[in-house]
Design a protein around this nucleic acid. Structure first.
Lengths: 167, 167
DNA sequence: TATTGTTATACTCTATAACTATA
DNA sequence: TATAGTTATAGAGTATAACAATA
C-alpha cells in the first residue's frame, strides 16, 4: 500500500477493512432493497423512521441524519407519497410544517422488506462475529459514532486551500 | 442460516452504530476530497490504486472492488483522462485491453489530497480509539470483510419474491 | 465463442438558489 | 427576520444493452 504519512500499518489496515466492509454491506443491502421492495436505501430509512416513530413526523424531524438537503427530502417524500407509502399534510400546530405519516401500505411494505434486510445483515456482518466480537464492535462503533456526531460539522476537513474545481 | 426473526438489541445497536459511523465518515471524506481536490471518492480510489500499483493497470484490474459496472469505469476513466490525471493506451500484450497509468499531475494531486484525507480519517475514526480498540477493530473488520468477499455475490440477498417495481 | 472495453441512453439522486408562506 | 418546505434546474453518477475488436 501507499504508506500515507502518518498512518501506521495497523491504523491503515483497520481503516481499509472498515471502509471496505461498510461498502460491501451497503451494496448488498441496496441490491436487496431494490430487488425485494423497489426501495432505495434512503427510502427504506425514511420508512423505518416513520414506522419506528409510531406517528407523524415533520419533514425536518424526518430528515435528520438521513438526508443532507431539504430539497432532497422533498423529492424522496414525493416519491414515497406517489407510491402510496406515506401521506403528507400540513401540521395543525405549525402551519409551516408538513406532517409525514406512514400508510398501511407503507407499513406492510416495510415489514415485508425488513426480514430480508435483517437476513442480509446477519449473513454478511453478524454471522462471522463471536459474542465477544459483537460486544467490542458495538462498544467501539458507538463511541466512534458519538464522537463523529459531536465534531464540528465542517471543520473536520481542515480548509487548507480553496475549493478545487471538480472534474 | 435464517435465525430467529429479529435482531437482539446488542446486534441492532452494533449494526446501527457501524452503519451510521461509516456513513458519517464517508460523507466527510467526500466533502473533503471534493473541496480540496475536486475529486469524488471513486475517483480518489482509482488514483490511489494507480499510485499504489506503481505502473499501469488494465481497466479490469482497476475496476476490481471500486466500481460495479464496466461502463461506470469507462466514464470515470474518461473524466480522469480529460483532467490530465491518467493516460489510457492500448496494451501491447493484449490488444483488447486498455492500460491506464497515472500521470505526474495525477500523482501530485493524489499526494496533495492524501494528507488532508488522512487527517479526516484520523480525527473522525482513529482519535477516539485506544490501542486495544484499534486491534479489536482491525481484527474484526478484516474478518468481516474477508467473509463478505467470500460470499456468493448475489445469493446473499435471497430471492424470496419477484423484483419489485422501483418507485 | 468468450473477453475487453466503449458508446448510447435513460434514469436516479443530489444540491443550490429562488420562492412562498407562516411564526 | 427567521423558519419550514417546495420548486426549478442543473449536474454527477450509475446501469443496461448494443456494439466493435481481439483472443
Amino acid at each position: 500500500m501507499t504508506g500515507p504519512e502518518g498512518l501506521d500499518p495497523q491504523q491503515l489496515g483497520a481503516y481499509f477493512a472498515f471502509t471496505e466492509a461498510a461498502s460491501l454491506l451497503q451494496h448488498q443491502v441496496e441490491q436487496h432493497l431494490r430487488a425485494d421492495g423497489g426501495l432505495s436505501y434512503v427510502q427504506f430509512q425514511l420508512l423505518a423512521r416513520l414506522a419506528d416513530a409510531g406517528g407523524p413526523l415533520t419533514m425536518t424531524q424526518l430528515a435528520d441524519g438521513v438526508v443532507y438537503s431539504r430539497s432532497g427530502l422533498t423529492y424522496q417524500a414525493g416519491l414515497l407519497e406517489k407510491a402510496g407509502l406515506v401521506t403528507r399534510a400540513p401540521s395543525p400546530d405549525d402551519e409551516r410544517a408538513t406532517l409525514v405519516a406512514i400508510t398501511e401500505d407503507g407499513l406492510a411494505l416495510f415489514g415485508r422488506v425488513l426480514s430480508g434486510h435483517v437476513e442480509v445483515v446477519r449473513s454478511m456482518l453478524l454471522d462471522p462475529l463471536s459474542e465477544e466480537d459483537l460486544q467490542h464492535l458495538g462498544g467501539i462503533m458507538t463511541r466512534v459514532r458519538d464522537h463523529m456526531r459531536a465534531l464540528p460539522p465542517r471543520s473536520a476537513a481542515p480548509r487548507k486551500r480553496r475549493a478545487a474545481r471538480s472534474l
